[in-house]
Computed example of a mutant assay.
Amino acid sequence: MSTPRLVATDLDGTLCDVDGMVSVYTRDVLLALDERDVPVVFVTGRPLRWAREVFGHVGSHGLAVVSNGAMIWDVSRDRPTTVRGIPARAALDWCEALRAAVPGTVFGVESQRGLDVEPDFVERFPLPETARRAPMADLLTDEPGSQALKLLARHEELGPQEFWDLAEEATGGSLTITWSSSTTLLEVSAAGVTKATTLALLCSDLGVEPDEVIAFGDMPNDLQMLRWAGTSYAMADAHPSVVEAADHVAPGHDHDGVAQVLAGVFDL
């Protein structure tokens, strides 16, 4: 394997430890790569508000793909360079189709301003202070900065795969569905928007080819990115579908698996 020119890594369950943070050892490896002018791009399902927690470790190159590809964020300039949101009408039609087919479905919407949810949405983490609870028709908009980057669809009775299959059947692939949660929570992006397609745009702008990228992930929302990259690693504790799709397996996320692999690949 030739030495990669760019590192693309998921965060939760991949680069970050069990507490969702970057260890001292991993931080030192990322800084060493930054000093060698090797961009490390965080490619995460996290919304901007959660991704900011680890932006200090992305280095001077400072680029992150957040919300499963819905936005490229320039960390050093603290602004988006690319936004790939969901038009309000398309989002509402999708939600209505899924709810009609699968009663009991409730929704939330992530935008650049934060998270808003329907009244019956059961959130597993504390809601931001700015969060609103209202029907989706009142939460969806095409206003810049408030357009949906990612829809959240939750069901309290179905399993994740069953819910995903029903959602695909009900909505006909009009939007992009993926899954990275341990609960039954679907993450929905605009048509054609994935971690892989947005990472491809970023790499094209940098003049980096797919075979010059090394990528790491652990959940189904990483599958397309791992298949796109020239070299791919699943974490040892990854979802079985990810282990099957990746070229290699890295040590677990709570054992600095990404950093261990990078230290060897770049001879740090």
Rank of each mutant, 00 (worst) to 15 (best):
D37H: 14
R79T: 12
F55Y: 08
D237P: 02
G230Y: 06
G69S: 08
D218T: 09
T130N: 02
R79V: 07
R133L: 07
A100K: 04
R46G: 03
W228D: 03
P119W: 02
N221F: 01
M1W: 07
G264L: 12
D205E: 07
S241V: 12
G13I: 09
V265W: 05
L268M: 15
V193H: 10
G159P: 14
G13E: 09
M219L: 07
S182N: 14
H61T: 08
Q147G: 12
L262Q: 14
G56W: 10
R5P: 15
N68L: 11
L186Y: 07
V242R: 05
E96G: 06
T3C: 03
T141C: 13
R49T: 13
E156T: 13
D211W: 09
E53T: 12
A263W: 06
F125C: 00
V213I: 09
F216Q: 01
T231C: 05
M71L: 10
V40Q: 06
P47A: 02
P220C: 07
V38G: 03
F266E: 13
D205Y: 01
L226P: 00
R36M: 15
H248R: 15
F163Y: 14
P87K: 08
E123Q: 02
M235G: 10
W179C: 11
D78S: 12
W73Q: 02
L31G: 06
P126I: 02
G257C: 11
F266T: 09
H253T: 03
Q112V: 03
V66S: 11
G13H: 04
K150E: 08
L11Q: 00
D237V: 00
T82M: 10
Y25H: 14
